[in-house]
Every structure is written in structure tokens, then in C-alpha cells.
Design a protein around this nucleic acid. Structure first.
Lengths: 151, 151
DNA sequence: CTGCATGCAAAATGTTTGCACTCTA
DNA sequence: TAGAGTGCAAACATTTTGCATGCAG
């Protein structure tokens, strides 16, 4: 009962040590390419369901299972970050690995702005250290309504 | 599709303008008392399912629906905090500090430390303002391994 | 008595799994 | 042609909802 784990919790958290894409035995398919493309163009966070809808609405013939499969592989490979949102969906974003950053998200249109602020990182690390926590990571998201959606 | 909300997202996030317990028309029942008791004695985070199991195993005759009902009421009243864990369950804990705060969570044993830091709040609001976002809220959680679990 | 509270049963969601089929390499 | 990849259908776990019944005030 306590043991649920619909998603191997290990996939979550923002740390990523990524093996390069194109590993042995990996095959290139239309679906893989499509998922990657949408993920790239989106920039921000996307849930599996959203991703699936976008693909379908742009005429791509792909199954929901495949989207989940792909997303899991990408997450395991460290090519996307996965965080669970408040409403229970897991949301993925292309991990540009160039630096740790957070997002300012519009709750209406989904527009996202990347935000970097070292002080927050430092603060989080300090807090953790003060309580002697190790292997620390953190998640932070600011949500609101963007100017275009405001009125 | 973006609109899922198995749990009205408004319950999450730590904003709480709490009406005092025992509001008008509120009745005291065995079940309510039982939930409150377990929640109190637990101290830390508890999922609805865990709470339910504990109640049952200690002989309490209560339904799962009631547990969920109660938890929702308590969350709306600001008497418990609700955070979604990595594995998808919402976990509740008796909320003692009345203000807005975040959590430092042990990813092994679930132990949590409440953290308050005005500067983070201010920073989040500033970032949002800079991009002209309104109706802003934010979520922040720091996860790591606590000293006892680090060994 | 009144209507808040309870809880069974059933629906809804997001995600995972079993497995037969498809296509890339 | 072997096996990685795909995707339908069905299973799952958590949470919500409909509704008839119960009980505190």
C-alpha cells in the first residue's frame, strides 16, 4: 500500500549525468524524432499527455505508450528532467545541461521563462548543510499569469 | 488535457489563510477525532493511504473516502500542509507554523524540516514582477539525505 | 428534525505492463 | 532477419464523485 512507485522515483530530481545519445543498439525512428522535435521546440515543461496531444494535433501518428516509453528512456539517459507538478502529472523538459535554472510559468498559456539566480542555489545548499543533509537537490517553480493572458 | 486536477491544485502550495478549527456547522465525530489523533502523533508526512492503513490497523472503523474528505477539509482550512511526493502520492502533515514556508525533505526516511526564508519569497515575487506576471505563487522543495540516513 | 458527515461503489486520471506486430539496421 | 521500437488493450494506484444512510446538535 505504501509501496506504489508508478514512476521509479529515481528518475525525478534535477541532477543529470548524461550518456551521449545514440547508444549501441539504438535505432532511429519517425516517432523518436517527432518526440525530440516537439520537446526541443517547446523549451519549457511538457507533460506526457501534453506532448502526446501536440504530436497528434500536428498530424503525427504516434501512440501514447510510445510517448511514455520515449520519455522514460530520455529521463534515464539524462536527456530530460522530470518533475512532478502539483496536479499529479510528471512534466518533462529538454535538459540543456548548460546550467541549473528554474522556470517562471504561465498557468494559462504555459509560456515559460527560464530563470537563473545563484543566490537561490546557494541558499538551498546552506539550508541543507545547516541540517546536515547530503546529496541535496531542489525544485523551484514560480507560476503566475503572463502579461498576454492577464487580461 | 492540461486540465487534470485529481486534486484541486489550489490545495497545494503552502499558502494558508486558516479559519480556526471548529467553524460554524462543524460537527465532532469519532472519525474526525481519529484522523486528527493519528496526524498529530505521526508528526511527519503521511499519505492518505498510509493514514487510512494506520487507522484501520489500530482498530478504527473508518472509510477511505472519509479520510480523503477529512484531509481535504483540513488542507483547505490550512491545518495541514499538502505536498506531492515523487512517487505521485500527496502527503499531508499537521501544519504548525502558520506562515508560508518550504520543506527540507529526506528522500530516504521522509523526515522533514520546515524552512522559512523571506528572501526567497521576495526574490520570487521580484522575478515575476520583472516579467509582468501576476497572481504569482511558487513551490520550492529541497530534498536530500538526512544525517541519520546518510550513515 | 436538519443537514453535516460517512462510506460504498463506481468513475476518472495519469502511468505502467503484457504482448503481438512492425521496421530499422 | 534479429531484436529494438511501437502501440492497443488492460491492469494499476491514487483520488474524486454520486448518493443513500447515519448521527451530532
Amino acid at each position: 500500500m505504501a509501496r506504489s512507485s508508478r514512476l521509479p522515483a529515481r528518475l525525478l530530481g534535477t541532477r543529470a549525468v548524461a550518456p551521449l545519445p545514440g547508444r549501441p543498439g539504438s535505432r532511429s525512428t519517425r516517432q523518436k524524432r517527432a518526440v525530440a522535435a516537439v520537446l526541443d521546440s517547446a523549451g519549457g515543461f511538457l507533460s506526457a499527455q501534453e506532448l502526446f496531444t501536440r504530436l497528434r494535433s500536428q498530424g503525427e501518428d504516434i501512440g501514447l505508450t510510445t510517448v511514455y516509453n520515449r520519455l522514460r528512456s530520455l529521463a534515464e539517459a539524462g536527456e530530460v528532467d522530470a518533475v512532478r507538478s502539483d496536479d499529479g502529472e510528471v512534466r518533462y523538459r529538454r535538459c540543456d545541461s548548460s546550467g541549473h535554472h528554474h522556470h517562471l510559468v504561465c498557468r494559462r498559456c504555459g509560456r515559460t521563462v527560464e530563470v537563473e539566480e545563484a543566490s537561490v542555489e546557494r541558499w538551498a545548499d546552506q539550508v541543507a548543510a545547516a541540517h546536515h543533509f547530503v546529496e541535496v537537490s531542489h525544485t523551484l517553480e514560480i507560476v503566475g499569469v503572463c502579461p498576454s493572458c492577464a487580461c
